[in-house]
Design a binder for these strands. Structure first.
Lengths: 108, 108
DNA sequence: TTGTTTATAAACCAACTAGTTTAGTATTAT
DNA sequence: ATAATACTAAACTAGTTGGTTTATAAACAA
């Protein structure tokens, strides 16, 4: 099942540092040391966040000499959006109901 | 900022019990005791999950005698989707690039 | 008024999270 | 050979999470 995938994806997204890292990676691949720069925390700490993102499949890394560049992977985000889309129907239905109510009221 | 809102929303969604509760609430309002039934865990445990959902603004509760019916609130889910939608552009761009590459290859 | 239903509070526990520092490993550059 | 760069591992800590059980409160029903 993909429920564990959802667990890991949403948990990974539940932290502002990790969301900022993803933002940064949208601009292009990056090294840990550069990803760590904007944050007031140690390099190993950012390395741990990176591991959470890797475990969720949101980031992949390749080898380049002593470097390990990070690359954004979109697939798990798609799965998360798909899950949330189910709810869009719910709230859109609610707003349509509300629209209908207001229209009715205007007709009075 | 809404970054704390996103923190709480994604954290709330990162648990299968809580996602199941939200699913259930899409069908209509429900009491804690009924929400707890499908799970192999105590009522207070489900009550705690409910509190996480409440704190994230995903669930509201009203009073009805000794009962406290739960109601699904869609707004925070919209904020979460909005955040994720930024990424849709990213991955859609990637797939368009891929499409272009494949088309090019077919033309050879 | 006594009991039943529904929910919450409190105390506890094991496991996990997010950070630290210190030390170590690879790989490259001089 | 040595030193610098980029990363990882290990050990530790404080705080949080997700569950338990037991007890209590609040509202209603007999």
């Amino acid at each position: 099942m993909q429920t564990q995938q959802l667990d890991r994806t949403f948990a990974a997204l539940a932290d502002p540092t990790r969301r900022a890292i993803l933002m940064r990676l949208m601009e292009g691949d990056a090294l840990l040391k550069d990803l760590a720069k904007p944050f007031e925390m140690s390099v190993p700490a950012v390395g741990k966040h990176l591991k959470v993102l890797e475990d969720a499949g949101l980031v992949s890394r390749r080898r380049d000499a002593q470097r390990r560049p990070c690359h954004l992977e979109a697939e798990p985000l798609k799965i998360a959006v798909d899950w949330l889309e189910e709810y869009r129907q719910f709230w859109e239905a609610r707003y349509h109901q509300l629209d209908a109510l207001l229209a009715e009221k205007n007709d009075e």
